Computed example of a mutant assay.
Amino acid sequence: MAPRKRMISVLSVVLFCTILSSLSANGSLLTLHHQTSSIDDITLHDDAFHGRGNLPFIEWWYFDAKLDNGYSLVLGVQVLNIFARGIVTTRLTLYDKESVLLKNYEKYFLRDLSASSDIPSVYIEGNQVILGSYDAVNDRFVYNVNIQNPESSVSLQFVGCTKGWKRQQQTGDWWAVILPRANVTGTITINNTTMNVNGTGYHDHNWGIGARVAMHFGWFWGTCSSTNYTVTWAEIQTTRLTQIPIMVLNTKNGGYLEIPSDTIWFSTENISFDHFRRVPWFFSIETVTEHVFLIIDMEVISVDHTDMFGFIKYWRYHVRCSGTIVVDGHMETVDGISIMEYLRFR
């Protein structure tokens, strides 16, 4: 960030905190909740299989985790159905200190998929890959995820510590963030060597993705966290020059708050060519509302490119997030590694 912009940002934080402290002498935290907005509470049914409806469609379940031993991973199940001739894929990518350690991609016939339309339960070739449940005693979602392949396997449990939400996009498709933040435990096996792991994870689910979505240019997506806050954000590029920013702020063991789109500023810098496309290597996201002040820079550490379904360009970033989140006068620092993505349809 340019020195002038950084100075303005720091001064803005100081001014913002001063104003808020004068309004709330005790510095009490805002109780985050969903107000009149475009997002709603999530249920287990929302994370079930929504396919076998209108054709064509794309649907996927996505999980990622940043582990305490320096490893990170992304895994998921994708379903593509065009005129009743569908395929199912699983993807698992393991990273060691943000560098690709191994990448596995498996493809199956649609008939190999058995997925419940009531709860998040997904089987492939008779093996359960995803099972989600609700822990009523602790009011949280719990997911068990298992993927096995010849080189590796993962068996992880994601235990939610934030309230999930869902949003229907302007194109009619749905984005459900069931686990904005979760505690992750389990095992990873690589070449017959098994290690116990723990860390922090995320899970979302997209469905109803049809031809209207592919008319978009693409999108950016990511998350950033401080001690008690988690920010899930996206920048939908309806065209190369027009965007729709989205941001939801979760508090740990609490609720969520949608940030108005017209108060979100997203910018990219350090553009370079990768796989014949212009891609950025530095990102910044900011907002100022009645209750929230946020400025976060994301500096790229590594980039991993993938072609999806033969026509989608996809870049997965590991980024170092640094910045500040202020909620009703309570300020926390953002400083850590996060995973984000850039997807382009053209």
Rank of each mutant, 00 (worst) to 15 (best):
L11S: 13
S12G: 10
F16I: 01
L23Y: 12
S24M: 08
S28W: 11
L30C: 13
H34C: 13
H34M: 15
T36W: 04
D40M: 15
I42N: 04
H45F: 08
F49T: 02
H50T: 05
G53P: 05
L55Q: 15
F57T: 15
I58A: 04
D64M: 01
V77E: 03
V77R: 03
F83W: 13
A84L: 14
R85D: 11
I87E: 15
V88I: 13
V88Q: 03
Y95N: 03
Y95G: 00
D96S: 10
V100D: 00
N104C: 07
K107V: 07
Y108G: 02
F109T: 06
D118T: 13
Q128S: 02
I130K: 00
L131Y: 10
G132A: 02
S133M: 06
Y134G: 00
V142P: 01
N144L: 08
N146K: 12
N149F: 09
V154K: 01
S155Q: 13
S155T: 09
Q157F: 02
T171C: 07
D173K: 06
V177M: 00
I178M: 12
T185L: 06
G186V: 11
T193Y: 10
T194P: 04
G199I: 09
N206F: 08
W207P: 14
A211Q: 11
A211L: 14
A211V: 12
W221R: 05
G222V: 00
G222K: 00
S225V: 02
S226T: 07
I236K: 04
I236V: 14
R240A: 14
Q243P: 01
P245S: 10
Y256A: 14
Y256V: 15
P260W: 04
D262E: 09
T263S: 11
W265D: 11
W265L: 07
E269P: 03
I271Q: 12
V279P: 01
W281Q: 12
W281C: 09
F282H: 11
E286M: 12
F293D: 01
I295N: 14
I296W: 09
I301N: 13
V303Y: 05
D304K: 08
F309G: 09
F309R: 10
K313I: 05
Y317W: 08
R320W: 10
G323T: 11
T324L: 03
G329Y: 03
M331E: 12
T333D: 06
G336C: 06
G336D: 03
